Amino acid sequence: MKQRRYIKLKEKYFQDNGGLLLQQKLANHGVETTRIFCAEELEKATNNYDDGRVLGKGSYGIVYKGILPKNKTVAIKKSKIGAPTQSEQFVNELVIFLKSTTEMW
Score class of each variant (00 low, 15 high):
residue 59 S to F: 06
residue 73 T to S: 15
residue 30 G to T: 08
residue 60 Y to T: 00
residue 98 L to G: 03
residue 59 S to D: 11
residue 98 L to R: 11
residue 16 D to S: 13
residue 102 T to C: 03
residue 59 S to L: 10
residue 85 T to Q: 10
residue 53 R to L: 15
residue 26 L to G: 04
residue 59 S to R: 10
residue 57 K to D: 01
residue 92 N to P: 01
residue 71 N to V: 06
residue 88 E to Y: 01
residue 6 Y to R: 15
residue 69 P to I: 08
residue 66 G to K: 02
residue 48 N to R: 12
residue 4 R to N: 14
residue 16 D to I: 02
residue 21 L to K: 12
residue 99 K to R: 14
residue 97 F to Q: 06
residue 21 L to E: 14
residue 40 E to M: 05
residue 43 E to Y: 04
residue 39 A to M: 12
residue 7 I to A: 12
residue 19 G to D: 01
residue 49 Y to A: 01
residue 90 F to M: 00
residue 95 V to I: 14
residue 61 G to W: 00
residue 68 L to N: 13
residue 50 D to M: 05
residue 36 I to Y: 09
residue 81 I to E: 04
residue 9 L to I: 10
residue 96 I to R: 13
residue 14 F to E: 01
residue 46 T to K: 01
residue 79 S to F: 05
residue 21 L to H: 10
residue 75 A to Q: 04
residue 79 S to V: 06
residue 85 T to F: 05
residue 74 V to M: 11
residue 22 L to P: 00
residue 68 L to K: 12
residue 90 F to N: 00
residue 42 L to G: 05
residue 102 T to R: 03
residue 17 N to M: 11
residue 14 F to K: 04
residue 23 Q to W: 04
residue 77 K to Q: 10
residue 97 F to A: 07
residue 81 I to F: 04
residue 33 T to Q: 01
residue 95 V to N: 03
residue 80 K to L: 04
residue 29 H to V: 11
residue 78 K to P: 01
residue 19 G to C: 02
residue 76 I to R: 03
residue 46 T to V: 07
residue 74 V to H: 08
residue 82 G to N: 08
residue 7 I to N: 07
residue 78 K to W: 03
residue 41 E to R: 04
residue 98 L to M: 15
residue 15 Q to I: 13
residue 27 A to C: 13
residue 37 F to D: 06
residue 37 F to L: 15
residue 81 I to H: 05
residue 3 Q to E: 12
residue 53 R to M: 15
residue 62 I to Q: 04
residue 27 A to S: 15
residue 30 G to K: 05
residue 57 K to M: 04
residue 44 K to M: 14
residue 75 A to E: 11
residue 45 A to L: 07
residue 50 D to T: 02
residue 76 I to Q: 10
residue 3 Q to W: 08
residue 47 N to I: 03
residue 45 A to S: 13
residue 18 G to A: 05
residue 25 K to E: 15
residue 99 K to A: 07
residue 60 Y to E: 01
residue 37 F to R: 07
residue 52 G to W: 06
residue 38 C to K: 13
residue 14 F to T: 04
residue 84 P to D: 08
residue 40 E to C: 08
residue 6 Y to I: 15
residue 56 G to S: 14
residue 89 Q to K: 14
residue 105 W to Q: 11
residue 14 F to V: 02
residue 57 K to L: 02
residue 21 L to T: 15
residue 25 K to T: 15
residue 49 Y to M: 08
residue 103 E to M: 12
residue 103 E to F: 09
residue 26 L to P: 02
residue 69 P to W: 08
residue 56 G to N: 08
residue 25 K to W: 04
residue 22 L to V: 05
residue 41 E to F: 01
residue 69 P to K: 15
residue 36 I to F: 05
residue 39 A to V: 09
residue 39 A to W: 14
residue 69 P to T: 09
residue 17 N to L: 09
residue 53 R to E: 14
residue 4 R to P: 04
residue 43 E to F: 04
residue 27 A to T: 10
residue 43 E to S: 09
residue 12 K to H: 13
residue 49 Y to L: 10
residue 50 D to Y: 08
residue 1 M to Q: 03
residue 104 M to H: 11
residue 53 R to P: 01
residue 68 L to F: 15
residue 19 G to I: 05
residue 81 I to C: 02
residue 103 E to T: 14
residue 4 R to K: 15
residue 64 Y to N: 00
residue 42 L to W: 01
residue 35 R to L: 12
residue 18 G to S: 03
residue 62 I to R: 06
residue 13 Y to W: 13
residue 93 E to H: 03
residue 79 S to G: 12
residue 83 A to Y: 06
